[in-house]
Every structure is written in structure tokens, then in C-alpha cells.
Design a binder for these strands. Sequence first.
DNA 1: CTGAAAGCGCTTACAG
DNA 2: CTGAAAGCGCTTACAG
Lengths: 345, 345
Amino acid sequence: MSIGIKQIAALANVSIGTVDRVLHKRGGVSKTTEDKILKIISENQYKKNMMASRLKLASKNKIKFAILLPELTSSADYWGLPKKGISKARKELKEFGVKVDYYQFSGSSSTSFKKAIERIFLKNYDAIITVPYFEKECNTLLEITKRRDIQVVFLDTEIQLQNPTNFIRQDSHKAGMVAGRLLYGLVGDQGKYFIVNILNDRGIQVNNKQREDGFRAFFKSIGKNVAIKTINHPLYDTLSVTEEMETWFQGADLKGVFVTNSRVNLIPKIFHTYNVSNTFLIGFDLNENNIICLKRNEIDFLINQQPEKQGYIAMKGLFNFISNQDSSELNLDIPIEIMVKEHFI
Amino acid sequence: MSIGIKQIAALANVSIGTVDRVLHKRGGVSKTTEDKILKIISENQYKKNMMASRLKLASKNKIKFAILLPELTSSADYWGLPKKGISKARKELKEFGVKVDYYQFSGSSSTSFKKAIERIFLKNYDAIITVPYFEKECNTLLEITKRRDIQVVFLDTEIQLQNPTNFIRQDSHKAGMVAGRLLYGLVGDQGKYFIVNILNDRGIQVNNKQREDGFRAFFKSIGKNVAIKTINHPLYDTLSVTEEMETWFQGADLKGVFVTNSRVNLIPKIFHTYNVSNTFLIGFDLNENNIICLKRNEIDFLINQQPEKQGYIAMKGLFNFISNQDSSELNLDIPIEIMVKEHFI
DNA sequence: CTGAAAGCGCTTACAG
DNA sequence: CTGAAAGCGCTTACAG
């Protein structure tokens, strides 16, 4: 049977108040008493009853989360998805005394990120969920939160930072390898491969580059020296056809196109306009346009990053950590989910 | 702000005891008072605080689960997996007053299932998690549990039963369609397709048949009239080669083999012995031997039913239902997870 | 038909 | 340095 503070108090011949002082390191307990209590706690593997604890605390001491995501734009409603998962967790955790505030930054402005962080630090949050767009600013964030004992979880992308930290995201390099495997199955040894990085105003995103590297690593791993060409394309709402792309329209050999982000739905229009066939296409994310293309057989595979799940798990994991001091779920890989047309029937 | 029984009592000018009598339909409340209280409850969307409720109840009124799974055999340790997920949930729910007992039945004996059910009914369980092997006995189970207000969740397979019920399992027909899509991508229009049903002593399992049908439905859906041959093979530890299989060893055309269960790892040995190439292979489940074959490129795709997740979700869903009367999570599709070699690197 | 009271396990402000 | 007591929101046995 598990033990409670009442039993600990009885075993140590003290009151439950004293046991609590030791458990919460509130001080004002004699060394002798403290040692006695600590011994009993460890011998009996005391684990606090989270229900009772939160029931007491929920009304006054809220657990406060700051969510700082890039703002939604017309071309990128992606960030609504982790937000949705966060919102779902928020509803579930409300009765446990969890409070959530939302902040935004502009994806093209490190200053806006810095400013949002400053506003966040004005309030006393227990945890921050954000995205590692700006390396320098993220390092600063980590230094400050470490000092103040604020938990941070980064979603979406893993980047190298100075302090160890928590990432809940898909392994982009591995996702690129999986994409390589899938496209190779369709296109084979004799075909031509194209990696399309669709850039935004800050150039290529870190995880898009990681996906590209993973894709190439796959072909290295199977020892095939196939032709792989990278096309870096500036983002337009309708993708213009660059000179590099024109090779797509020549020759009857099979071709495989790997788009390293969610803008893969821009490609089928090009194929259609130029009457290209014998081409296979793979990309990321389950936005509406991508799913339409998948259903039309214009896209062969989509890889899902499960952004909703990322947000949901970040919330749940942080809550568990803060309420139980259990860190197991704060750093994890989201599975590389492969989607085909039949998933949507 | 959300409202509690104290506020309801104040609004209705009664004591919290009376409010509780209405909430729990314990009777002994005048119609006038009851109506007044019900009105306040619905107007204010009262939702009981699960923490407080379980804190009070956890010590006396345990929520009791009976788990009834097929026994583990040397050739089928599969059922250890949902059990693992159930065990994980058990640990998390222990402090909420959840108790779990395990029962077993033999997959080849409906009597052993019936007997186990009888033993289960001797105790007062709140919920049963099991697997729908035997249609008649499952119908009986549902009738009795309905009368006694016991919740039931079936894992692994969905079958048609007389009463509506809860299934947490993968859509096997759809999984067969996904398998068709994947194999078609590798084998194409010109190849030959084979469905291998590896039978056990009860013949073909329901979900294996559903997968076969789904596989065929895929080819129908794309309007291709390819050659698909079904091979029903009795189970042996090493698969013997039947006459039907010998077509595999003839001709240079591509061939695709779809094994409708977890015994797919028996096939590569045959290919190896008879020096068969140009063959692609897909099957189910992430057992050790299957993963070894996947890593050796002997299997091209594995479909994961996420059995651990099934068990885990069943437990969590039932707990939520019983403690909150929220049925949303008791009937659901486990995603059709496609695995390739690179997932395991 | 209804109310007052004890208690689930933990937390903390207060008194000494 | 330590204890006694109130209270989180809900549940229920008891008294009337």
C-alpha cells in the first residue's frame, strides 16, 4: 500500500505540518527531524497524491502557462494546429488549476519575439511553450528561465542551443530519410530526384534543411548513387517555374519530387500546366490543399508532424512535471506519420 | 467562472446534501426542489470537479476493471502489448482509486471465455476490457453488462454484435486498402498480387478477412483489374510451401505479397530458399522478427495496430466515462500507422 | 423530504 | 522549531 503524509507523520512522531515543511523544503525543521522524515519518505517511496494536492492549490496557486507562437498569416495557418492541441489540454486541465495566456510573434522579426518574451517575464509563469525560430533569443530565454526555474518546451523544430532543453517535435532528419525510402520505392534506381525547398523571407527553415539532409542520407545509406538535385525556390502563392524546374518536363524517365515543407500543393499545378507525367510527389503536413491533392492522386505521400499532438503533449507533460516533478514527457520525438489517400476515405 | 455544488445550493436555498441527491439521482427530494436545482445546474453548466470527487471516493469506492485477454502462447506474445498499455494506465490511475484484475482465456476455446466471464461476474466490476473472439459469447456478455450497467470495451477487432458497443481498434478494411496502395506503388499495373492468410486452429481471423477485402477493394477503387490470388495457409512455425505458392518462383514480373497478419516474417525464408527476387512484401505488427525482416529489406512495409495504445486508451477512456459520464473516447479508430525501415534507425 | 457534519490527502497561515 | 486547525469540492451516513 502507498503511504500518505499522515502515516509519515505518525512514523516520525511529528505533525503533518512538519512533514510538509520537509517535503516542500520550506525550512524551519531541525536537522534530526528532517533526516528522520526523509528516511521514512524514501524507505516508503512516498509519492504525493496529485489529486489532493491540486484540489487544495487549484483555487489560489494556478499553474500558469505562456504560449508564444508565430502569428497566423494567410499563407500559414499552421500555428493554429498546435494551438488547438494546447486548447484541448487547457480544457482538460482547467479543473486542476491551470491557466493559459497566449502571445504572438512575427516569424520574420526576432525583435517581436524578444519583445513578447519581455512581456512574458513581467508575469510569473511556471512554463513557456514556444518555437525555436531565433537561436540567439532562444539562448537568452533559456538562461533567464533557468535562473527563475521556469520550464520551457520548444515545439516543431530541434536546434542546437547552449543549454540542454526540451523539444517536442519530429526528427526532421529521420523524416527526410523516410521520405527518401517512400519516393525510392516509387521511382527506383533509374529515376531522377528533386528536392524542392520553398523559402520564406528568412531563407530556408532549419527543419526543411534537416529534411533535405535526411533525404540525401537515405540514398547514401542504401548505396545508390542516384541523381538528386536541390531546387531552392522563393515562396510565391503560385509557384513560378524556374529554369531548374524545366528539366522536369524533359525525358520519359520517372521523376521523384520531395518538397521539404507544407507548400507541396503548389507543385501539381505546374505538372498539370506542363503536362508532366511519370512524376511522384511527397511533402509535409495535412493542410486542406495538400489533402485535396492527395485525394486526387497528385501527391503520393504526406508526412504528418502531428502539430496538434505536439501542443497537447507539451501541455500535459509540463503539467505533470510541475505538479509531480516527473520530467519523462518533456523531451520527445513525435512519430513520423505516413499518410496516403486511403487514410482519408 | 465555473460553479460548484456550494453555489448551486446557495442559489436554490437548500443544503449541498440536497443538491447532491439530485446530482446522483439518489431520490428523496421533492419535485419542486429537484426542478429548481436541475434548472440551476443546466443554466450554469455545472460540471463536477473530478479531483474532489475522486479524492473522496478513491479510498472506499474503487473503480474496478476486469481485463480479459487471450493467454500468451509461444507463437503469440501479441497480447502482452495491450496489457502493457493497460498496465501503464493502471499506474497513472492508481491514485484516482482504480483497481485492475487480469483474467485469461484460451483463443481456441469459447468455453474458457465463458468461464472467465462467469468468474468476472461474481465480482462487481465497473468495466471490462476484452477481445471479441466468440460472437455468441460476446452477445451474451453485452446483454448482461447492459442490465448491470457495466461498461465494456472490445479491443483489436470490430465485429457485428446485437447490441451497440465500444470498439477501440484499427479499421481493418481500411488498413487493407492502405496496404493495397502501398504495394501497388511498388509493384504497379503489370505485377501479380498475392494475399496470404495464415490460418490458426479456428480458421481465418475476422480482421484478417476484413484486411483481405480491403486490399481487394483498393484495386477496385483505382479501377485496375490486376491479378490477385488468395492463399489460405495453415499455420506452421516454419511455413511450408504449398502448390499455390509455387507461382511465386516463376516468371520475371514483379510480385507483391500481402500477409494479412503478424506472421509475415515467415515469408522471407521462402523467398530466400527459392531464390525469389522482384518481390515486395507487406504485413502487420511490430514484433521482433518482423522488425528484423524490415531492417534487412525483406519486408517493405509494416502496418502497426498500436496495441499498447489500444489498451492504454481503453483504460483512460473508461475511467473518464465512469468518473465523468463522458463517452467520447470509448469508440474509436486507432490510426493506420505505416512503418518503414528508417523508422527504426 | 432535508440539513449538519465528518472526511478524502494535502497545504498553509497562525499561534506558540 | 513545531503543532493544531481551516479549507479545497465533493460524498454520504446520520439525525430529524
